[in-house]
Design a binder for these strands. Structure first.
Lengths: 384, 384
DNA sequence: ATGTTTTATTCAAACGTTTGAAACCTTGAC
DNA sequence: GTCAAGGTTTCAAACGTTTGAATAAAACAT
């Protein structure tokens, strides 16, 4: 009995642990001038409150309603004066939230990516999420290393901009395993249960073809996209369908195929080569339906080099409506993808998926095919 | 004397703290299925070692040499199997390093930014730093909020791509206060003690002017950049110098000034307007020296709309060598900025500054003016 | 046997935040 | 003079990782 009491009243009962306060005091002495950033503790010391109070005030936690107004002001002032910025790492660690959504583009240098990016950003800004931008530079290795990084940075969602280069292999496994919601822009991956936003390529192809037919063209050359590229097939299908509807048989000898691209700008050279080839072959055509805008620009260049003018001698159509197409002279008639809208829809979907996961629900993968739009500029006209 | 000993031998000396082991055991029972990511503890439990050992092995710390090979393998296998990825937040918090360099662009949609970005990325990749890409979208508010974010995310360095929009006001204060090294690309801020990488605008302007003079042009119109833009003045100075050297007086009535830009693409409209104005005024010129490529493209468009051809009736020069200038037909003769090299130099400088700071030294701000290069394409030729 | 080194593993204290629970004042009521 | 209520502030335990110091076990020499 006495033994128990002694235990409680001993003068020096095995000093197992220092109190928090003691630890803080020690630190005050130990650290002379911190090389790093200013912390809550610095502020707490500077104005005589505990770290807790300071935290509560500065993070505007619900509890801060209970803190005296005078105290609040004193703390805020000190924080401002010392240039305090909360440590995102400590905060995210503790809160178990990164407030981060990764945006992984297969190649930012593709003018196609920008408007999408803008859409994503505009969709993300209102929510309290910061975009984590990454550019895979069309390199598989980089792409994978970024995916690893995304997992390590505990991104709460992922938006992939990928018209190609994107093989779902490991990605799916590891992301899925960690319950990171994914949305992909520019490709249909709903078969793999990933929400997808893309343009209706089939409709776009048809739109382009109908435009040329309406202008009176009959001999139309078509440059199909590279085989690896997901967009190529449906676009071609749409072109064929519209041709059939207009009663036009597309001469197979006027159908070309872009080689596999190594970088997005290579479409330009492809288009230029095509123009040279068709002129050399002597086969006549009054219009060229190019796979995308950069290819169309290449075609214009190739035709010009041979002394042919666009659109007087030959019409040229592009696809995507990227910046260079609008700024060239003649401006390229093209099929516009509503890229910004697509981006912001992707952002919205990711946010919804995160919210759903939060409340225990599961969001079924969705698919949205944006309606393309014909933009008539100067590169198309009636046949000569 | 007895009292002290009693303290040590008491049966139940106020159980002040649970041991680490106990804590872990408790957690094992408490948490059934973790909703979040798999942690070191999960792996430790799964293969019967302590968290320390697992950490040492997986992070390949120096101590891991002492860990039995068998153990190492077992741990690695388990980590792979469970899909473990170290938590960047916990790691950075503990290591007090974010391994992150922020790259803040004033407007990613400007084709001018990309090549720089690529340069930066290529300079950063070999080092163990991840770029933290941010796009201010030409909005002051966003710019500031990103700067705040950069501080919170404890970026170890900052590269700013800013030909404009960048006012150094608060930035300097807060970044400097936290010892974050800064390099700016596209503007000389060495007066504010910030290392700067930019093109030698004066030399570029002169280069362009000399090209036109050499072709035999005498009546040369010049479109000066917007006043807010830092590049405008030195470029104009170079043009004047080269003109004087060639004995050419530039007719003040042929000198125009772009209005302040709201977005990077607005140069196009500026150039187009200019062409309309000069044609309407009836003043003759045989060449136009435009402030940048986008402006040059606008001029080409404007001239074409009036029935004038480039370069037969009038030569047009650009500046920067961005993608659309190369892809237009005719290709725009321009002054190339070695953007990629500039970007990678900026990256190198930041890395050096970080290293310097690490070893207590201080790196003096540097200035590099890249040598511009004339790229002759098809938009320039002898006067008619 | 006893000490010394080597090898393999773990302890416990950080890093900077957040937050449920506890403690500390006042003040007012019985 | 005790109790309760309320407002204000602090405690202490997390979050997941790293790491200097400590321990345990084995190997080796004395």
């Amino acid at each position: 009995m006495a033994g128990e009491d002694v235990g409680r009243f001993t003068f020096d009962p095995a000093p197992v642990q220092r109190t928090h306060f003691e630890k803080e005091r020690l630190r005050v002495k130990a650290v002379k001038h911190k090389p790093g950033h200013v912390t809550l503790l610095d502020i707490a010391r500077a104005c005589g409150f505990s770290v807790s109070t300071v935290s509560i005030v500065l993070s505007e936690a619900p509890l801060s309603r209970n803190v005296a107004v005078k105290t609040r002001e004193r703390i805020r002032a000190k924080a401002r004066q010392l240039g305090y910025h909360p440590d995102a790492y400590a905060r995210s660690l503790r809160r178990r939230r990164s407030q981060t959504i990764a945006v992984l583009a297969y190649d930012l240098s593709d003018p196609f990516c920008f408007p999408i990016l803008r859409g994503i950003q505009s969709g993300l800004h209102p929510a309290q999420f910061r975009p984590l931008l990454m550019d895979a530079e069309t390199e598989r290795k980089l792409f994978d290393s970024y995916l690893k990084m995304i997992l390590e940075l505990r991104a709460e969602g992922l938006i992939v901009i990928a018209s190609w280069v994107f093989e779902e292999t490991n990605l799916l496994a590891d992301m899925e395993k960690n319950h990171v919601p994914i949305v992909i822009v520019g490709r249909d991956l709903t078969p793999s249960k990933i929400s997808s936003v893309l343009v209706d390529n089939e409709a776009g192809g048809a739109l382009a073809m109908r435009h040329l037919c309406a202008l009176g063209h009959r001999k139309i050359a078509v440059i199909r996209g590279p085989a690896e590229l997901f967009d190529s097939a449906p676009r071609w299908a749409g072109v064929q369908r519209a041709g059939a509807e207009a009663g036009i048989r597309i001469d197979p000898r006027l159908v070309f195929q872009l080689p596999g691209m190594v970088d997005p700008a290579s479409g330009f050279e492809g288009g230029r080569d095509f123009a040279r080839q068709i002129l050399a072959s002597g086969r006549a055509c009054t219009a060229v339906l190019a796979f995308d805008d950069l290819t169309a620009l290449g075609v214009v260049r190739g035709l010009n080099e041979a002394g042919l003018r666009v659109p007087e001698d030959c019409s040229v159509l592009g696809f995507d409506d990227v910046l260079p197409a609008a700024m060239a002279t003649p401006g390229i008639t093209t099929i516009r993808q509503p890229l910004a809208e697509m981006g912001s829809l992707a952002a919205q979907w990711v946010l919804e998926a995160i919210e759903a996961r939060e409340s225990g629900r599961q969001k079924a993968p969705q698919l949205y095919k944006a309606r393309p739009e014909l933009v008539v500029r100067m590169s198309s006209g009636p046949p000569p």
